[in-house]
């Protein structure tokens, strides 16, 4: 067979080594976005089903963390921008073709929503909480009359937030590993799963833990199914997509993906949660932390591998993060 050797004049230090455009900021944001989407979804969903007494952590406590998580995520996004003083340009246009544009607008809606939703529950979680200024208390009390509408809005926008983090990547045809429509549902399910794990971590009520262990096991199962589907899709596709899948099936990402994401992040917590549901006593902290860790690793691996998978200049393929 013929060998192909490519000598490239692209090796300017400013060009090729930095073509990994996105480093830790983007995966961290995608992770926090998914986690927040999961927490808010469960909170709003069980609020609408009037389960406040059964699932107090999911409905009241967990959402208190979401504005801070989103703030960290947004800060990470801001740090990633290289032309920072122009960030407001995002909000002078709406471009429907660009997932990043409607993601920016989604954040513009869901960030204030998460603050208001958290404000509704502060007094339930901290009974001695004082808003200091009466107009804040009055505003919160006034808005609380529309809690049901806020809950419906949260369900819609948390689903969009959870999906869009995946669609953002899958819209890039230039990066074969991202170019699969499974990524949207995969990130949504992973976000819901990390959200459920976060609630598990905080919850003290056995009934709530039991239910969220069930939910999380189901979500982990779905995630494994989607991952298998994703690779089947790649392997049945074009040569660049097969090549992208091979980065995980013997290539540079094999070890990190199958041990950290699938093993520690999905299979082990699934096994522990099933054992737990069958009555074996295992500290619930272990599977919850593993799921949260696995979700973070999934974002890091996918963001990094996507940028390594390419149509041209395959010699640039490498593990960077």
């Amino acid at each position: 067979m013929n060998d192909i050797a490519i000598t490239s004049g692209r090796m300017n230090h400013g060009v090729d080594p930095v073509l990994h455009a996105w480093s830790w900021e983007i995966p961290l944001y995608l992770y926090l976005g998914g986690l927040v989407a999961g927490i808010l979804f469960f909170s709003a969903f069980f609020y609408l089903r009037r389960r406040e007494d059964v699932f107090p952590t999911a409905i009241k406590t967990a959402p208190l963390f979401t504005p801070f998580m989103l703030a960290i995520g947004l800060l990470a996004l801001f740090l990633d921008l290289t032309h920072k003083l122009y960030f407001w340009r995002l909000y002078t246009t709406i471009r429907w073709e660009s997932p990043m544009s409607w993601g920016a607008w989604t954040l513009m809606v869901i960030f204030p929503l998460s603050i208001i939703w958290a404000a509704f529950w502060v007094k339930d979680v901290f009974p001695r909480w004082d808003w200091k200024f009466s107009f804040i208390a009055n505003t919160v009390n006034y808005l609380a009359r529309f809690k049901v509408y806020f809950a419906w809005a949260l369900i819609a926008f948390s689903a969009i937030l959870g999906m869009y983090t995946g669609i953002l990547l899958s819209a890039f045809n230039a990066r074969p590993f991202w170019n699969t429509s499974i990524l949207g549902p995969l990130f949504l399910v992973s976000g819901l799963s990390t959200g459920a794990a976060f609630i598990l971590l905080l919850s003290k009520s056995p009934a709530e833990r039991h239910r969220f262990s069930q939910i999380d096991s189901f979500l982990i199962g779905t995630e494994i199914f989607l991952i298998i589907h994703m690779f089947m899709g790649f392997l049945a596709s074009t040569s660049v997509h097969i090549h992208a899948a091979e980065m995980f099936l013997g290539g540079p990402y094999t070890a990190v993906f199958w041990t950290l994401v699938v093993g520690l992040g999905l299979a082990v917590p699934l096994f522990i949660e099933i054992m737990e549901l069958r009555g074996v006593k295992v500290p619930v902290v272990i599977p919850a932390i593993l799921v949260l860790f696995g979700g973070l690793m999934l974002r890091f691996v996918v963001v990094d591998a996507g940028q390594s998978s390419r149509w041209l200049y395959k010699f640039m393929e490498q593990l960077v993060f």
Binding site: G14, D80, H83, Y86, F87, F172, N173, R310, L312
Partner: peptide, 18 residues
């Protein structure tokens, strides 16, 4: 341009840089 680098990720020819 806000420097989000989406275009860099989207270019199959890797023709862009910051």
């Amino acid at each position: 341009c806000i420097g989000c680098k989406a275009c860099i990720a989207s270019c199959p020819y890797d023709a862009r840089f910051v």
